[in-house]
Amino acid sequence: MSGMRFTPKGYGGHRRDPEQVKRDGWYEQGVLAVSVHDDRLTWPERALVEQLGAKLYGPRPDREVRNG
Rank of each mutant, 00 (worst) to 15 (best):
G10P: 09
L32M: 15
H14K: 15
G68Y: 08
E19M: 15
E50Y: 12
L56D: 04
V36T: 10
Y11M: 08
L52I: 14
V31R: 14
H37S: 13
T42I: 03
F6I: 15
Q20A: 07
P59A: 08
W43Q: 13
R46G: 01
P8Y: 14
L52C: 14
R16D: 12
N67P: 02
R46I: 06
Y57R: 02
V34K: 06
K55Y: 05
G68F: 10
Y57V: 05
L48K: 05
R5P: 04
A33C: 06
R5E: 11
P8T: 14
P8S: 12
R16H: 13
E19V: 11
L52E: 14
V31K: 11
P18Y: 00
Q29S: 15
K55E: 11
D62Q: 02
G58K: 06
G25M: 01
P44L: 12
G13M: 05
Q51Y: 04
D39E: 12
R40P: 04
T42K: 10
Q20D: 08
E45I: 03
T42C: 07
E45F: 02
D17V: 09
M4L: 14
G13W: 03
P8D: 14
Y27M: 09
W26S: 09
G13T: 00
H37K: 13
H37M: 11
D17A: 11
S35H: 07
V36M: 10
K22Q: 02
T42W: 03
R40L: 13
D38T: 09
E64Y: 05
E64H: 00
P18W: 01
L48I: 02
E28S: 03
P8L: 13
Y27K: 04
Q29A: 15
A47G: 01
R16I: 11
A33G: 05
V65Y: 07
P18I: 01
R60G: 11
E28V: 10
E45H: 03
Y57T: 03
L32N: 12
S2Q: 02
D38R: 09
K55W: 07
T42E: 10
V21I: 08
G53I: 02
L41H: 07
G3Y: 00
K55P: 04
P44G: 09
V49P: 06
A54R: 10
V21G: 00
G13H: 00
E28Y: 07
D39N: 11
G25R: 06
T42L: 07
D62A: 02
G25L: 03
S35V: 06
F6W: 14
K9E: 08
L52M: 14
E64L: 06
D24F: 04
D24G: 02
T7V: 15
S35Y: 07
P61I: 10
K55S: 06
T7K: 15
G53F: 00
P18D: 01
T7C: 13
L52D: 11
M1P: 02
G30Y: 01
E64F: 01
V65G: 06
V31E: 10
K9A: 14
A47H: 04
D24N: 04
E19T: 12
D38K: 10
L52F: 09
G68Q: 12
Y27S: 05
R46T: 07
R16Q: 12
E50H: 13
D39R: 15
M4S: 12
G13Y: 04
D24T: 02
F6N: 15
S2I: 04
W26A: 09
R15W: 00
P8I: 13
